Computed example of a mutant assay.
Amino acid sequence: MFEDIDTDRRPVVLIWEVTQACELACRHCRADAQPARHPEELSTAEGKALLEDAASFGEGQLVVLSGGDPLARDDLLELVSYGDDLGLRMTITPSGTRSLTPERVGDLADAGVRRMALSLDGATAESHDAFRGEASFADTVAAAEAAADEGVPLQINTTVCADTVGELPAIRDRVRELGAVLWSVFFLVPVGRGRVLDPISPERAEAVMEWLSEVASEERFGVKTTEAPFYRRVELQSDGEAAAPRRRAGITAGRGFAFVSHTGEVYPSGFLPESAGNVRERSVVDVYRNADLFESLRDPDGYRGKCGACEFRQVCGGSRSRAYAATGDPLESDPLCPYVPEGYDGPLPETIAEPTGTPGSAD
């Protein structure tokens, strides 16, 4: 379905951060989640209006309800059901807490949730809970099993940084064992509490991409990367198509992707917190299609540095969120990508150094 979407007109993925409230306080949390709900969260009525706007993007628009923990909202089932009735493909990324009981999973399935995404950042309780700084492994696995029992397709999200990269092969096994349909591998962007974590080096990232390409060819579940679109370059180069890439662009901030915060601000991505408008004042459809920020992000020819000169810019384009986090300019080059276009002699992004003694290997 993605190949048929005109990303100038609609996002492939629209995320609504329904709340920042969460029982957990994970070390890497993009949202910098808090224990209590924010008093200026979108109300039920405002949330329904947002979903109505989302439906006007076109048939089957994918909407992801995220947080914080969406379960912190007592109107969550009402919102899911309302979106489902509008023809939206409603999905959810709940936190792995004791509140995500099999009964809650069943209620979400009955309300119309089409997919559930759970975070797994270690293959064991010891590694997962140590990374997140919270005991959530057992609850996450129980929720994954409940999703299978309810027939809800499961997605596993994993953060890649210096602390987790060595766990990737073992996490892969867990993804298979849990029967997930998709493994979404998030490459760290230093925002929120994630600023205290160490990224992997560009060279290590390249090796992980090559390994993920092999995983995708060997496993029944799909593999995608988040904030690391140069995975598509690696795939193309491995297929011998370096000279004339033909695949369509991947999803990047503002180009096939939009994010609505808990207070209604519209960002190109949750990892690129630059507002282009607020849904209380302007339709999310109008912001996505016409805001200057979004339009600039959909023009890879306007990117700066080596990303702007790269022959893969149309199918990759680099992480606009990481460029923004590193330089304050979302059109600058992605510092995680090690590739330098042939003949390019301009400035290079500041090198990311991987901490000495990073454990394990994913290649």
Rank of each mutant, 00 (worst) to 15 (best):
R98A: 14
E103L: 14
V181I: 10
D110E: 14
P102S: 12
L118F: 05
D121H: 11
E126R: 13
L118N: 00
R114K: 13
V113T: 12
D107Y: 00
G106E: 05
F137I: 08
A146E: 06
R193P: 05
V185R: 11
R132M: 07
W183P: 07
E145T: 06
V196S: 14
A142S: 09
R104D: 04
P190E: 11
F137M: 04
S95G: 15
P190H: 06
L100T: 13
E177R: 12
S184R: 15
P102L: 08
E145V: 04
P169C: 10
V181F: 10
A123V: 05
L120Q: 06
S95I: 00
G122R: 08
V196I: 13
E134V: 09
V113Y: 13
R176N: 15
G133I: 05
S127H: 15
V181S: 12
P169E: 05
D173R: 14
C161V: 05
V141M: 01
L154R: 08
G194F: 05
A147Q: 04
V141T: 08
D107P: 04
A109S: 15
G112W: 10
T124L: 09
D110K: 11
A147I: 04
S95M: 02
F186S: 01
G122A: 11
G106F: 07
M116T: 11
R115G: 13
G122T: 06
G166H: 10
V141Q: 06
A117L: 13
A125H: 13
D139T: 12
R176W: 14
R195A: 14
S184L: 08
S127A: 14
V113W: 10
W183Q: 07
V185P: 02
V141R: 07
I156E: 12
T158M: 13
L154N: 11
S119D: 02
D198W: 04
T124K: 10
F137E: 09
A123P: 09
E167P: 08
R174P: 06
F187E: 01
S136E: 02
F137Q: 06
F186C: 04
H128F: 01
I200H: 01
S136H: 01
V105K: 07
S95V: 07
I156Y: 03
I200E: 05
A170H: 09
T101N: 02
E150V: 01
L178E: 07
A109C: 04
E150G: 06
C161Y: 00
V181K: 03
I156Q: 04
T124A: 12
A148K: 08
T140E: 08
P199H: 02
T97Q: 12
T159M: 15
T97A: 13
P169Q: 10
A138N: 06
P199V: 00
D107I: 00
P94C: 08
V152M: 13
T101R: 01
E167K: 02
V152Q: 08
A170T: 06
L178K: 00
T101K: 07
L188Y: 02
I156K: 01
S127M: 14
T101V: 10
D110Q: 13
A111E: 07
I200N: 00
F187Y: 09
E177I: 01
S99H: 14
W183F: 00
S119P: 03
S127K: 15
P169R: 03
L118I: 04
G112K: 12
R174E: 14
